[in-house]
Computed example of a mutant assay.
Amino acid sequence: MSTPVELRAALADRLTKDGTLTEHAWESAVRAVPRELFVGTYFTPLAGSVPTSYRPVRKGEPGWLEGIYDDLTLVTQLDGRTGPEDTAGETATGVPSSSSTLPSVVLRMWQQLDAEAGHRVLEIGTGTGYSTALGAHRLGDGNITSIEYDPVIGAAAAAAIKAAEFSPRLIIGDGLRGDPGGGQYDRLIATCSVRYIPLSWLHQVKPGGRILVTLSGWSYANALALLDVTAPGEATGRFLADPTSFMIARPHDRPPRPTLDLLPGEERPTLIDPTTLDSWTGGWVAQLAAPGAIRMGAGGQQILWDLATGSQARTALGPDNGWTVTQRGPVALWDQVERAVQSWQTAGEPHQDHFGITVSATGQRVWLGAEDGPSWNLPI
């Protein structure tokens, strides 16, 4: 059986070999920070279960330590309240609400942030504290401030960080409001996703500083953005090629949805293939076009439902093996999605790194190709 030191070294070697780790200082952090202090217990999904069931993996049981040093995301909480230690039976069901993100993603993002010695960094979403400890090792305790929304998760992270002998500044609160004490930061990194860039971040990161955050929405499509703050309250940036997803910040999450009744509406042939929405970028473009809607279904049978207006759109197989769409309500959801997807297809269906974002006092806008290209407003 391998020791934690050996497992950390093996993880560092794997991430260096596959190109994830490109800076020696971050490789040293992986070899030094004991992930097992931050993930005492965790859930693993049971393959093929519908809805997904999770098995608690408890400290000391066979495979526990090896699982911690796999390059995997480890779910640590379900439904905002249930941890592995709270599970009396063999399995539990629920929606993941906290996790320890796979190390390769955490380390790739820290390197993309381009934080250097002396930079002050604000981290949104302490989670288990593993990412926070990596940052503290690389940049120093005094340069890291981390904010966690959930007090139970935050307390556990604080204990683990202390046990690992780090002492960054830790805050329990709403990270979307930034540092409650104010202050100016050189970098901001978010380990949750948001529907739009909170204005507080744009005033707490210095002009010339950077923000790295995943943009998501109520259809849970994701895109990783790196923004340069150009002035207080203003920024511009590009989306990165890496397919990165995080749980959406709880204040930005969609409201509870009632039971969906599929009601009659106006039917017509679709102008796009509904299966286009199943691709990573295609689904994200659809979300940009209809930000107030949730998307359900898959393949040719897509369902869009706007919770605020009750508007619906659903696709189905039509005559001659084509596809039809049925829409009802004040918002023509599929019309909006069609226009956005067609603009993307005209550009050659580029990946997300061909998109950019501009944030100003007048709003937040995602654009394709260049700032004067097709664009969509974020729902601020």
Rank of each mutant, 00 (worst) to 15 (best):
A92N: 09
V75P: 09
I124T: 02
Y130V: 05
G129H: 02
I153N: 01
E165M: 14
G67S: 12
I68S: 06
S98P: 03
H137Q: 13
P84H: 12
I124V: 14
D86Y: 09
P84D: 13
S167I: 00
H119T: 02
N143S: 13
S97I: 03
L102E: 13
D114C: 01
P151I: 02
W110T: 08
T91S: 11
T126E: 04
E123A: 00
G67L: 08
S97E: 04
G125P: 02
S167Y: 04
T73P: 09
R120N: 04
A117V: 11
A158L: 03
L139S: 05
A158C: 09
D70E: 15
V105D: 07
A117T: 13
A117I: 11
H119L: 00
Q112I: 01
A88W: 11
V121P: 01
K162G: 14
S99W: 00
A115R: 02
E165W: 05
E148R: 01
A159S: 12
L78R: 13
I161V: 15
T76W: 10
L72V: 14
H137F: 15
G125Q: 06
Y130W: 12
E85S: 14
L107R: 12
S99I: 04
V106H: 06
G142C: 07
A159M: 08
S131K: 04
M109Y: 09
A158T: 13
E90Y: 08
R138F: 03
H119W: 02
G67M: 10
A136T: 03
G67I: 08
D79M: 12
G129I: 00
S146P: 03
D70R: 15
I68G: 04
L122E: 00
S100G: 06
G80I: 12
H119S: 10
T126D: 05
P151K: 05
T132G: 05
V121G: 01
G142D: 15
A155H: 05
L134R: 01
A136Y: 00
G140W: 04
L102V: 06
P84W: 09
A157F: 03
T126F: 02
L113I: 03
A164I: 07
R120A: 12
A117W: 09
A115S: 10
G83D: 09
S146F: 02
W110I: 11
E85M: 08
F166Q: 13
P96S: 09
A133Y: 02
T73R: 07
I68Y: 02
H119N: 12
S97A: 10
E148P: 08
E123C: 01
K162Q: 14
A133P: 09
D141G: 08
P103S: 07
E85C: 02
L107A: 12
G83Y: 15
I124M: 05
D114I: 00
A92W: 10
I144S: 05
R108A: 13
I161K: 12
D86S: 13
G80M: 12
M109L: 12
V75I: 15
E165K: 15
H137D: 09
G129L: 01
A92R: 10
S99H: 05
Y149D: 03
S167C: 10
M109Q: 11
G135S: 07
Q111G: 08
A136N: 01
V75E: 07
A163V: 05
E85L: 11
A157E: 04
L139R: 06
I161F: 08
P96L: 10
L74N: 06
V152P: 00
G154L: 05
I68D: 06
T145Q: 10
